[in-house]
Design a protein around this nucleic acid. Structure first.
Length: 327
DNA sequence: TAGCAGGAATTAC
DNA sequence: GTAATTCCTGCTA
């Protein structure tokens, strides 16, 4: 990753590559994500774009955040550049939709701008939701300034896991959230020359999200996948959490956690643990049980058999369980 | 070998 | 008291 990159040559935006929110033209992985993300994806037709050529919208979901060598970057927290220069003789009601080679008319430009704004809003919402989920799962405050050194370690371990980083948390021991926030990017790079900038960027995301939450609290943070059975999850981070709730929370965030746990049949509540070690480690992090493993976690799941919360499906398969009362 | 099932004791809240 | 953890034996794919 080249941290000294000037930013977007197309838009002239000079935002650094690690800006919390940015658009990438080439992020094919995100394209796949967008194809899957039916719950937040605006219709491509609404954006006036052909199928599969939506300008790459980078959503910083925590297992998708990857920094690129030379992405087309646009800082989303800043006003996007106009899609096209305004027409010298604007005729908003006389658009010619059958001439695709023409530059967009004023109306089309406004529509595109509105669409971009919608995408921005959507992206920011996703960031807030992802941060919120991580807070729940880690039992930490959303604002890094409030973190103790243990919270910092949790966050670092979490980030290591989600981005498959080597152990970087060792480099940041004994640091509180305030310490972390007072560090410059250079300080981060000094502690981890290879991943310091990436961690700094992640911290920046969290700080931005905390600031955004402070500015516009939180009635719109109700996500589309919220529902009655997740109400009990809303009182984080101070509330204890049951294992079944934790699993369900992971399942309700397939964009982030599908590589470790996913629904096989959501209607029937059947799910599969794809990465037992990772799920166990996440659970251990959440409960401050560093010795947690899948053997112990699965024993806890089996305790649910008697309680009628989780059971094995009728056709029993390894690592597959079923909520007795699905959504 | 990893996962599954369940007993029993212990721990944390 | 409850939920979860820890440790265990034995079984299965």
């Amino acid at each position: 990753m080249s941290m000294g990159s000037p930013g977007c040559e197309h838009t002239g935006c000079t935002a650094p590559l690690h800006s919390p929110l940015y658009i990438s033209q080439t992020h094919t992985d995100t394209m796949a994500w967008l194809d899957e993300a039916d719950d937040i994806k605006p219709p491509r037709s609404l954006l006036g774009l052909p199928e599969l050529s939506w300008p790459g919208v980078y959503l910083p979901c925590y297992d998708r955040l990857a920094l690129e060598e030379s992405p087309w970057v646009l800082r989303m927290t800043e006003a996007p550049a106009p899609a096209a220069p305004p027409s010298s003789t604007p005729e908003p009601n006389q658009a010619k939709p059958n001439q695709p080679q023409d530059p967009p008319s004023g109306t089309e430009g406004q529509v595109e701008e509105r669409c971009l704004e919608q995408v921005q809003t959507m992206v920011v919402g996703e960031v807030l939701k992802d941060v919120d989920t991580a807070c729940k799962l880690l039992n930490i405050a959303p604002d890094p300034m409030d973190w103790s050194s243990m919270h910092v370690q949790k966050w670092l371990l979490w980030t290591e896991h989600l981005h498959k980083l080597p152990q970087v948390s060792m480099m940041f021991q004994e640091l509180s959230g305030k310490d972390l926030c007072s560090m410059t990017e250079a300080d981060f790079r000094q502690r981890s020359s290879q991943f310091g900038d990436m961690l700094y960027a992640h911290l920046d995301i969290w700080r931005s999200a905390a600031a955004m939450k402070e500015r516009c609290p939180p009635e719109d943070s109700k996500s589309a996948d919220d529902n009655s059975w997740s109400d009990v999850m809303r009182n984080y981070p101070s509330q204890p959490i049951h294992l079944w709730q934790f699993l369900r929370d992971l399942l309700l965030k397939p964009h982030n956690y599908s590589r470790c746990i996913r629904w096989l049949n959501k209607e029937k509540g059947i799910f599969k643990i794809e990465d037992s070690a990772l799920v166990a480690r996440l659970w251990g992090m959440r409960k401050n049980r560093p010795a947690m493993n899948y053997d112990k976690l699965s024993r806890s799941i089996r305790q649910y058999y008697k309680k009628g919360i989780i059971r094995k499906p009728d056709v029993s398969r390894r690592l597959v369980y079923q909520f007795v009362n699905p959504v």
